[in-house]
Nucleic acid binder design. Structure first.
Lengths: 151, 151
DNA sequence: GGGATTGGGTCAATATATTGACGTGACATA
DNA sequence: TATGTCACGTCAATATATTGACCCAATCCC
């Protein structure tokens, strides 16, 4: 139980440091870790036409209201735009703008890769895979807790 | 590199879910995960006389200004109090109140332990230790990044 | 067609989090 | 003693995050 306590405390500290150091890594681009997560989601090859707000919120595991504010700041900064979906006119599809895509690929991604290699200094490929596995498992459990509480 | 990206994305998701599900676990006590971290820090046996604001901020890895707000909300709710340190009168020592200690031990801790066991469902003791090890290592790297950026 | 659901915008309250800046009193040292 | 440093409180701006509530339009389903 003491180990469990330490684990969650370290997770709490890691979360804060991720936002602090991660945001610092891309602050010259005017981005934050959250915005970087959004751009990362939208830049995936399987996302051709864009993502609806609901799908994006579900993917990032954040609330719709939170994402709404995030997206409006990113729209204000010209990184993303949203347009009504032709197929389901309730939906608005969020996509990266040309300048957002340029910023992401040419300026943000290189810095993010540098950040990854520094933050994972001393991690072997196997270490990364194992750590990822534990986080995935933990996340599954917490998702289940979340669903259970909502019932 | 793709694995690294997934790792940090899962860390980001885990952080959000930790606050969401963790706060829900103790919301009946009027606590949040952050306040639970503060109470956890103050309840350690080696903290006899209390902790100064600076030491607490350093321990939790949060900014002084953030902690200040957190502490004033907790003081408002009667969970902690702060008094000038006799030895260094610049310092104010933060301690748990009697009611805060009661709340922590009799109501919060049991719920937190239930939360731990649910969130770690399927984790062996060795899994917890390994996961903790990775988070510790990651945290060290991010701390170094943080110091480096401040120079 | 009509009722229920879905997707989303919005307002509000609240709590976390950062950085930067300024002031004040206490302490340490040259 | 004078200077500098330290611990803290505070104000401000900004960005994230939650929940709950309400509304509207589009879609789905019976």
């Amino acid at each position: 139980m003491e180990q469990a306590n330490r684990l969650f405390f370290k997770l709490y500290q890691c979360a804060n440091m991720l936002h602090k150091t991660g945001t610092r890594a891309v602050e010259a681009e005017g981005l934050t870790t959250q915005q970087w997560a959004v751009l990362g989601a939208l830049s995936r090859p399987q996302v051709e036409r864009g993502m609806s707000v609901g799908a994006l919120a579900e993917y990032l595991l954040v609330s719709r209201q939170n994402l709404s504010g995030l997206l409006s700041r990113m729209e204000r900064d010209g990184h993303v735009k949203s347009a009504p979906d032709g197929e389901d006119r309730r939906s608005r599809l969020v996509t990266m703008t040309a300048s957002g895509r340029r910023l992401w690929k040419s300026r943000a991604l290189p810095k993010i890769h540098t950040y990854y290699s520094r933050a994972l200094d001393g991690f072997s490929d196997a270490d990364v895979t194992h750590a990822l596995h534990y986080l995935l498992k933990l996340l599954e459990n917490m998702k289940r807790l979340d669903d259970g509480g909502a019932r």
